[in-house]
Structures are given as structure tokens and as C-alpha cells.
Design a binder for these strands. Structure first.
Lengths: 218, 218
DNA sequence: CGCCATGTTGATTTCTATCAAATTGAGTGG
DNA sequence: CCACTCAATTTGATAGAAATCAACATGGCG
């Protein structure tokens, strides 16, 4: 449990208590961790794997609001129902807390609530960045920003291969994250490869011309 | 101060303390309350007026990430620097707290931090809604969603005229909020008027066909 | 009354979506 | 091990929604 960044707020005894209310869950590829509008009875902390966070419209259009990577938390808002769905992009391992117990625990640990608030504030910043991307960037800029973001996020995760930008999610997920179609995502990435800006490799891409991406990214 | 929703978390004595660290500020139309990347030395609670929240790109493109209405808080994330700018759309009156004092106060009032976290969670939901709007809605749907949102928000504010949807912000602000151009905003609104879906009135619009908007809005 | 910012309207372009096939490739079973 | 299958991706042709470019109108205010 000590690897959980949120646990910096807790002392040794509290950590032990938190361990007691946690259990590990495993989700196969494509499995739904939880669904939009369902009762939010758990708090998750991803240990391994990648999940997509989705909001859907009645007619089937979807917006991927984010990708959860190892270390990320889901459900810290403590609202009664989920406001988005989460699905495993790869097999996912998550540390799971019963919401009621986690909440009772948080009520007794002001420092934990403060940490949760910091996490929420960070997520809000990310969301605002993404609004700029969705509202004002071109398809090429959106892809560049996305790839730079993924490079940054993977680099913070222990055990990643530097240089490789893993893209375990499919083109459709990337399209739904960037407000584009799958065809546009495919075209832009392949054009970048033709222009020697990147190379497509199994399970991801590698930057060839980092300057190009830094200049385009948000 | 008692009208501040966040103060529900405090008892009478605490409220008095909070009053002691607050002061009212007035901002004329177009005046900048604070600027992206400046040190965040204040927390604001809008008492009157409307402000636009803006993220800018180096080349001048802008994304309005939200509009602050009376009752709204700015700066509850308690991060060191502002991540967006706020400008008065109309003359604004805001209750202002020195950040350092507010933060020290919050540290002694766990219930206040919890309330701040609820506010941040709510903002995050709004931001995710807006991502769907920006990424997946048509121009017509964006305008309908925006107008329905403004109607809902004004209806929660005491002293509003029911039926009138006030739009104190200019067409350019609406365009930058919805990820459109000013011409498209103008065209869509005026087309809606020609189609008898709404009427344009001084300082805002009125719905004629509420069903039309409910069907289109997110 | 006229000025200047703001908003509206029209013509045209452009970027991305849509429609439509190929191609690739991972997984399956013979 | 290899052919087969089906989903995912790529590529091509075309359409379409919104942007851009360009006037023109409006209206608040000195």
C-alpha cells in the first residue's frame, strides 16, 4: 500500500487500517469496472493496466474523458452515482475500497480529505487542458498533444521503457478521446510516420522528431 | 456571509471568523480578476455579476472554460498559481479571502475542506459534460445545450426573471466557450429565431419551444 | 449625430466526417 | 505449421459542416 501517493497523508497505523479495508480486483480486457449512473459503491486505485473513462450519448456517440493508468484513482469524488463508465483497455488490477468504509475512514482523517481535494483539483486542471484541446486544436495538434501527454504519463510510471510511447488503447478510443473519427486519427498518425516525425511500433509509437511534437502540443 | 453555500459547513462562531478574513472587491466590466499563471493569492466568491474563465494559447486562440455566476467560487483548488484567467463580463462584486488566511482556516475546519472537495467534484462533472459537448456535439446541439445550461443556472439565482435567459457575455465569449466561431454562433441563434424556437431580446433570449431545446441538449 | 465595437449575413474554402474498399494481423482450429 | 476468420486499421473518394473571408447592419455612447 505504501506506493499509493494518496497514502502520504497517513501515518503507519492509519496505513494499516486502510489496508484492512482494501481488496485487489482483476478485470479482463474490455470488462466494465463500473457503469455511468450506477451506484458508486467502490473507490479504485489502479495497480496495473489501463482503463478508458467514457461518457455516452443516447444515440451512441461517446466521449472518452480520460485514460486511467497505474497509480490513478477512480471514485474519489464520493458522489452517490458514477458520472462516467470505466472499461479495461488491457487487463487491469485495481486496489478496491468499499465506498462506505473509505468515506468513514476519510471523515476521521482530515489530511486524507485534503489529499483527495488535491487530486480532484489536479483532475480539474487536466479537464480544462482537454477542453482547450477539444475546442481549439486541429486534428494534427490534438494527436501531437495526446502523444506528448502519454509520453509524460508513462515516464512517471516505474518499469516503462523510455522512448517507447505505449498506446494500448485502440484507434477508436483515441478518436473518442480527441473528438475525431478513427479515420482521421489513422490518417494523421500515418502521415506523421511518412513525414519521419515518429515510427509506429508494436503496441505504440516512438518519437523521431521530438521538436515537432513540442512545437505542436498544447 | 450566511448566503454562501460553502458556509453550511461552519457553525456561527466559525462564520464570524470567516467574515473577519473577507473583504468585498468590485471589478468593472472587462477588468481582469486574475491572470493565468499569476500567483493565486486570493479565493473569490462572486456576489454579483458574471465572469468568464479563460485559457489562452500562445497564438491567441482562446477557450472559455466556464462562466462564473453569483454564488460561484474561484480558487478553491488552493494551487500555487492560477491555471486560467478570470475577466468581468459585467461589473462584478466578489467576496475575497486572502489565500494564506483562508487555507489556514480550512486546515482547522475539516468540514470546510470536505465542502471544498464537493465543489471541486461538481466542477469536474461540469468539465466532463463540457468535454462531451466540445468533442461530440454539432453547432446546433452546442448552442441548445449552452442555452439550457444558462437557463438552469439563472433559475437557481434569486432575483432572476423566470423565462428570460440572460446572456450578458458577447457572441465571441459564447463561441470560445462552445469551440465555435462568432459567425457560427450568430447564424445558429438567428436561425433558431427564424424557426420560432426562441426570441432574441435585450440582454438575452427567451425560449419559445422548450421541447426543441430539451431534445437537442446534452 | 456620427463613431466604433459588436453582431449579422453572404460567398467561398477547407478541414474533417462520411462512405466505401482494401489490408493487416492476431487468434483459432484443422 | 498454415489456412482461415474476423476485428482493427489503413487508404481512397466524396460530402458536408463549420471556418474563413468579406461586407454590411446595428446600436450604444460620447
Amino acid at each position: 500500500m505504501r506506493h499509493l501517493s494518496i497514502c502520504q497523508a497517513l501515518d503507519a497505523e492509519e496505513l494499516t487500517q486502510l489496508e484492512d479495508i482494501a481488496s485487489d480486483s482483476v478485470f479482463d480486457e474490455r470488462v466494465v469496472l463500473f457503469h455511468e449512473e450506477d451506484e458508486a459503491s467502490s473507490v479504485f486505485n489502479l495497480t496495473a493496466g489501463v482503463a478508458r473513462l467514457i461518457r455516452s450519448l443516447p444515440d451512441g456517440r461517446r466521449q472518452v474523458t480520460g485514460f486511467a493508468l497505474p497509480g490513478d484513482f477512480l471514485g474519489l469524488s464520493l458522489e452517490k452515482t458514477w458520472r462516467y463508465s470505466a472499461e479495461a483497455v488491457t487487463p487491469v488490477v485495481a486496489c478496491r475500497f468499499r465506498r462506505s468504509v473509505f468515506e468513514a475512514f476519510a471523515d476521521k482523517n482530515p489530511q486524507l480529505i485534503k489529499k483527495m481535494h488535491e487530486f480532484a483539483s489536479h483532475d480539474l486542471n487536466m479537464a480544462q487542458d482537454h477542453m482547450v484541446l477539444l475546442g481549439r486544436l486541429t486534428a494534427e495538434e490534438k494527436l501531437a498533444s495526446f502523444l506528448v501527454e502519454m509520453k509524460k504519463r508513462w515516464s512517471r510510471i516505474a518499469g516503462h521503457e523510455p522512448g517507447l510511447i505505449r498506446l494500448p488503447m485502440g484507434r477508436q478510443d483515441i478518436a473518442d478521446y480527441l473528438g475525431l473519427t478513427i479515420e482521421t486519427v489513422s490518417r494523421v498518425i500515418n502521415q506523421m510516420q511518412r513525414d519521419r516525425k515518429l515510427v509506429i511500433v508494436p503496441d505504440g509509437i516512438r518519437f523521431v522528431d521530438q521538436n515537432y511534437f513540442d512545437a505542436l502540443a498544447l
